[in-house]
Simulated assay, not measured.
Amino acid sequence: MCGRFAMTLPTDAMAQLFGAVPGNDLPDVPSYNVCPTTNIHVVSGEEGQRRLGAMRWGFLPSWYKNLTDGPLLINARAETIAEKPAFRNAARERRCLIPVSGFYEWSKDEKGNRLPWYFSRRDGAPLVFAGIWQGWDKGEALVKSCAIVTCAANNSTGAVHHRMPVVLEPRDWGKWLGEEGHGAAVLMRPAAEDVLQFHRVGREVNSNRTSGAQLIEEIAA
């Protein structure tokens, strides 16, 4: 599962990284506590061009009558994404890239207290998650919404949580976006053991109202 992340990369750097045309409605950066239902940066392929735009984090199936009509779908499980009615069409036709600087996961101590950890790439590059998206038109205006694809955790990440986002390497971005034909399903696998690093951070991030660079600073485990 992935339920919170940080994004610190400037918008122009993101657009250059992906060779994407940036939109005019992108969220402010840096943001160290990005929460579900907010707009996030998403790279999609539309009309033969990569576009960097804002989408609501929380996938809206076509049958939802309003934004809160059913469960909040922030993640889509790789194992069932091709079968679930909410996700299967998007998995075939509307895949996207979701860039982040790092993400949070939680473990529990012997008393049941939630202990946050911050995950990022060892090489310092942004993380790029596999995502799916679609438009939802039941409100006053079209809403583009998305979900992060998750898979079983690798051994190192599994020490904190049993699930993890699907992390895509640059060589796989085009395939996931459908620019290189079929075969994207094989990309829905755990990251190699040497890709991620993680450390304990303070419990302040447990509140979705907190912000600031101190949220990702390492503390003693």
Rank of each mutant, 00 (worst) to 15 (best):
G181K: 04
G19W: 05
L97M: 07
H162T: 09
L72N: 13
D109P: 10
E218I: 11
D109E: 11
L73H: 05
P170Y: 05
G178P: 02
R94D: 01
E83M: 06
S207P: 07
A153G: 05
I216F: 01
G131A: 03
G58L: 03
E204N: 14
N155H: 15
S107Y: 05
E110F: 14
E179M: 12
R4A: 09
A13R: 13
L142E: 15
G112D: 07
M14D: 08
E83Q: 13
D172N: 13
L73Q: 03
L142C: 10
N206W: 07
I216K: 01
A130T: 01
K144H: 14
F87E: 06
S62T: 14
L187G: 01
M164T: 04
H161K: 00
R121E: 07
Q197D: 14
G45Q: 15
V34G: 12
M164W: 01
A15D: 06
P30G: 07
R50A: 05
G174F: 07
R122L: 09
F59Y: 15
G131S: 02
L60M: 07
R209K: 15
G183S: 04
R163I: 01
A76D: 01
G3H: 10
T150H: 00
A220G: 10
V149R: 00
R4F: 12
A141C: 09
N154V: 00
R94V: 02
I148A: 02
G202C: 12
D194F: 04
E105R: 01
T80H: 05
A20I: 02
